[in-house]
Computed example of a mutant assay.
Amino acid sequence: MQSSFSELEYAAKKRVTRRDRFLAEIEAVTPWLSLTNVIAPHYPSGGGPGRPPVGLERILRMYVAQQCFGLSDEATEDALYDSQAIRRFVGIDLNREAAPDATTLLKFRHLLEAHQLTESIFNAINAHLAEKGLLLREGTIVDATLIAAPPSTKNKKGKRDAEMHQSKKGNQWHFGMKAHIGVDAQSGLVHTLVGTAANVHDVTQAQALLHGDETDVFGDAGYQGVEKREENLELPVTWHVAMRPSKRKALDKSAVGELMEKLEHAKASIRAKVEHPFHVVKNLFRHRKARYKGLAKNTAQLFALFGFANLVLARRWLCIADGQVAP
């Protein structure tokens, strides 16, 4: 198809923006065929009456852009009209066609939620990464982060989300949910995800975050006593849990104390990798607050977010593996 004048003008511009570079990286590393194959059995074929559905890859690309830029359905539709970079990524030429609207994206999101397809997308991405040798699976780091939810009661029912709860972190109370993740200790990529209310203690989800092939598991001080829990007694793993901060501060300057301090420092350096996917989801994708009501919808979104976060974290390795120039 012949390019429009606006596309040619955009392609000829001298400066490549950060959004251009980011979308080009996502374009290059996403296993589009694998993701469309996962969704295709559930996507309408358009054989009946009414308006034919938007092409699967096109609406999937619109959904990916929405997650990577932290946009609502309406804001994603607006972005297609405002940003040539996003239009180019999705494959829309406004001179020939209208952009898919917010309702179309909403229906696609509901389709993903109804068939647990965001988890399938997450698994398909990880299968792709495993084929490239990026998930080594010998060690796992477990951790959790709070995702805030709107605490306001200024709505029709006059109530907060019943599935969200309060949790105290330090001296501050937070209302929302938790994203519990299991991360490959070598690559720092997320292999397991569980969403719960914020008041669920981290240690109760530790076993659910293991894939079963690891020999060592690392966790912060919130996982103290994890090896004594009934569900973990028979697990063939070694738990490496951080010492409580108060106990670590009390270490003396003896040879034993210095050795224990070095051991804690070594464990902390390994655990640091778990912060990378949290950084991508919260800072790069701007997902700091639950967008929807209920745990199911928000957990479904988290599977998509952490799946795409894995691609962002692995993009340099993937480009090298595919013989491309790493960004």
Rank of each mutant, 00 (worst) to 15 (best):
H276I: 03
P277Y: 09
P277S: 04
F278Q: 06
H279F: 12
H279L: 10
V281D: 08
K282N: 06
L284M: 10
L284V: 15
F285D: 07
F285L: 07
F285G: 04
F285P: 01
H287E: 11
H287V: 00
R288W: 02
K289R: 15
A290C: 11
R291W: 12
R291E: 10
Y292I: 04
Y292W: 08
Y292G: 03
Y292E: 11
K293Q: 14
G294K: 03
G294P: 01
G294D: 03
G294R: 07
L295F: 01
A296G: 09
A296N: 13
A296L: 13
N298M: 06
T299C: 11
A300E: 13
A300V: 01
A300M: 12
A300S: 15
Q301Y: 10
Q301M: 15
L302H: 09
F303L: 05
F303N: 06
A304C: 12
A304F: 08
A304P: 02
A304I: 02
A304N: 06
A304M: 13
L305S: 13
F306G: 07
F306T: 01
F306N: 05
G307T: 00
A309P: 05
A309W: 03
L311R: 01
L311I: 00
L311E: 07
L311P: 00
L311F: 14
L311S: 03
V312R: 14
V312A: 12
